[in-house]
Design a binder for these strands. Structure first.
Lengths: 223, 223
DNA sequence: CCAAAAGTGTTAGTGATACACCCATGT
DNA sequence: ACATGGGTGTATCACTAACACTTTTGG
């Protein structure tokens, strides 16, 4: 058996768990399958890796094709390879984890998909294949990243208020933070900068707008 | 294109970065390749995933076949899929991260391999394919795991002295710790238990032997 | 008695938590 | 003037970091 290229080969896909924050709720983007198996069911966007295509490139391509979403924060999540996870045969999937700014983009699926939609990440519908397991794994990663890196800013526009930032943390980690302590911590970490602008038009005192001065995803112990 | 099983398929392998601690040095297990490409060169143990085999099972099987090592702590590390990483064609590899007790096992390669040996993990020889990159990634994971989980105990026998434990940390993280503070921390975390035994026969005061009372890899902020 | 590693406490500083009131705006 | 969320400081407690000497053994 010297010619290793003769081994039977599995199929390889990428699946993307993409999160966003809408109306103070964490959302995950799902697509409605228009082919079997699980036709008509909801699934993570994803698809087959082309034979000459890098994995991350494949993930970005599938995301764009199936949902119209681009310019995301993307990182590899985990590879799922249970031999029985797909009834069509051996399919190994490399799952990716993506974040996108709230109200960032319109959904505009192009291929293979009848519909793409945002769902509550904590109460998703039943999902095809082992996608529920992948989603759970992604949620854990998101929580971890929030506490130890600056990914939270990825959910926000370039300019944001500290209350918006705090809500991101509270929503994803399911706990309340003390406003004064939260701000003290953020300032002490020196990860935001006052832009000088304020958010007007509210029926209360206008909030200062800040921007992030670290690279997204940079390792900084936040909480 | 409804029959997705007709897509051209990549090859899929697993590679295992297995660490151990010998003579206060972190070691990685490498095998000498006896087939092309990189014949005669050093590489991480690994090989093709069988068509009906779970990924973790494949990693354990390859490790046993190529090195004789079993009963390891094993977790998935990362999936490397650069289309050019293997000259034989498209090969995607799921890298695993493994730890084994010091002086745990004898090396006893069975197949496809002329030789298996331990090398300094920080000054390894030139490696085949992109295995240097995989090793670097594994070293980072190891350092992280050491600080935030109880994996360090995986390097030690069931009973160990606190100085042995401290040396694991110092060797892998490249820094010295104060003996008193280190012990205070470990005791405060309540992760070790006095066995009542002592390590005799040294030309100095004998050390107490402790055991770990947490599951290996459990999440506990150590340092 | 010497060498070598084991074992042990205190202090000062830093960061975490808990907590309540005034401010600026739109209606 | 009132409702709404924005913005701020202090006191306590817990944890971290720095630091040196005595103990026990074998040779």
């Amino acid at each position: 058996m010297d010619d290793v290229t003769k081994f039977p080969r599995p199929m390889v896909t990428v699946d993307i768990v993409i999160f966003s924050m809408h109306d103070h709720e964490l959302k995950v983007l799902l697509i409605k399958r228009d082919i079997q198996p699980y036709k008509g069911g909801w699934a993570l966007p994803g698809g087959f890796v082309h034979i000459d295509e890098d994995l991350e490139v494949a993930a970005k391509r599938e995301l764009l094709e199936e949902t119209g979403v681009k310019d995301v924060y993307l990182e590899q999540l985990y590879t799922f390879g249970d031999p029985k996870r797909d009834s069509r045969g051996r399919v190994i999937t490399i799952a990716y984890f993506a974040l996108i700014k709230s109200e960032g983009q319109r959904l505009d699926p192009k291929t293979d998909v009848s519909e793409a939609n945002w769902f509550s990440a904590y109460q998703p519908p039943k999902l095809a294949f082992d996608h529920s397991k992948i989603l759970e794994y992604a949620l854990k990663r998101l929580q971890w990243k929030l506490e130890y890196t600056t990914v939270a800013f990825q959910f926000l526009q370039d300019k944001f208020t500290l209350t918006e930032l705090q809500k991101i943390y509270e929503t994803i980690l399911h706990k309340k933070f003390d406003k004064r302590n939260f701000r003290k911590k953020i300032f002490a970490l020196d990860i935001v900068e006052d832009t000088g602008d304020i958010l007007e038009g509210m029926a209360h005192r206008p909030a200062k707008l800040y921007k992030c001065n670290k690279k997204i995803g940079e390792l900084v112990e936040i909480l």
